[in-house]
Design a protein around this nucleic acid. Structure first.
Lengths: 236, 236
DNA sequence: ACCTGAACACCGTTCAAGT
DNA sequence: ACCTGAACACCGTTCAAGT
């Protein structure tokens, strides 16, 4: 082994804030007010410094978000996945969804900019791999992964903004509620008859069911389904 | 019929700009620079006025976006849909997707705020109605619609930001490309072997295939499939 | 090396005044 | 009734200067 690199002696003014402190504060701000609430100026106040001091520790706001993203991605759950490839696709997608549902701002960042973390690719790897094990070509496996990603990203984005709306709920009825209250039963009969239950129905968490449906449609039917006569009758 | 309301005589200074002009200009700006490029100040310049003049014609920026949304929604294609309910679900979803793909900013607005236009509900009505005709309960039909909406919204958002990225493409490789170039074949074997083709594969438009898979999984199997013996052999 | 303050080029929106 | 200019409370970021 080579000599340990001699630590270059620090010169000049000692640092007052560290990158770690900045990231901690950023996490705190996002937790409280969402990514929208994270501004360099706000962050500076939070660490008891000036906006410009931050630029000495991170290149710009994009790098800050990327660092946060890497942190989260590294800490995301990587559960043991089932052997059966079909189940593995579903399980990996569910794990990805659950990991992201905990911090929906990541999805906004993921789709908005070109931010991407290597550790987050664990999910893609497993979904693509399991899809190939199910008999898809690598190309079709990537397309299947994309479909799952669209569905998952859409679900999280839609639900996250619904949540934000609920949080910012003033007393007065929302525009959406008014539109639904005024539906014309002649032109929109099904929606009109469901209007009263729409909010409750769309508040239900149906990610899992939709995922199952999607995966069922994406993967080829199992080539040798267990014959019914042999299926264990008592199995729950 | 009652007397036509006598038009209250206009008094005071005659208007220099109209709501129509403002909306036209807003559409132009969005067409060119996306919703992100639409600011009240920019818009004022475009109509040859000051930012504050706009506030005399629209309440605020949110109302402006809502007016634009209504306009688009009213002009969206309402194609004739097939009789067969299963095909109708797919066709309505495709029509919705195509209508939105033409102006992806609408999706951002749709999910971000609580903006919603009655005319846009035509698609939801048809999807829910056709799903019920396929044998789903109204509740499950709403859930099916939601799954289709998640998938569709996700597809458009992801593809739109990919397009924006391409538009803003500087010479240097993106962060994403670098991550893919450095993949470790040990830990991410499938992705590593696909790295070179990833960009091309994800650029393909696979909305239709994914939708078919999703709809297949969401709807019950047709109760009386046409017996094979009777199927028209020459049918393409 | 690290931090600061002033400044630049932006936002949406309010307010008081002009015609 | 309609428009304007100045102002308020924000952004991210650059630049020159201080310690």
């Amino acid at each position: 082994m080579a000599q340990p690199v001699p630590r270059r002696p620090r010169t000049g003014r000692p640092p007052r804030i560290s990158r770690g402190e900045i990231l901690d504060a950023a996490r705190r701000v996002i937790e409280g007010d969402g990514v929208g609430g994270l501004t360099m100026r706000r962050l500076a106040k939070e660490v008891g410094s000036t906006p410009m001091a931050l630029y000495h520790h991170v290149k710009d706001k994009e790098e800050l978000l990327l660092l946060l993203l890497d942190e989260y991605a590294g800490a995301m759950a990587r559960p043991a996945l089932p052997e059966d490839p079909r189940e593995r696709v579903t399980a990996a997608a569910l794990a990805m969804h659950d990991a992201l549902a905990g911090c929906p701002w990541i999805v906004e960042v993921l789709v908005a900019d070109d931010l991407l973390s290597t550790s987050g690719l664990w999910y893609a790897e497993n979904i693509v791999g399991a899809a190939v094990a199910c008999g898809l070509t690598p190309e079709r496996a990537v397309h299947a992964y994309r479909a799952i990603w669209y569905y998952t990203a859409g679900e999280i984005i839609v639900r996250a903004s619904a949540g934000r709306r609920r949080a910012a709920a003033d007393d007065r009825p929302t525009h959406r509620e008014q539109v639904f209250a005024d539906l014309d039963p002649e032109t929109l009969p099904h929606l009109a008859s469901l209007a009263g239950r729409w909010a409750a129905l769309t508040a239900e968490d149906t990610y899992r069911q939709g995922l199952r449906a999607l995966v069922d449609g994406l993967l080829p039917a199992p080539s040798q389904p267990p014959p019914r006569a042999l299926a264990q009758p008592g199995g729950r």
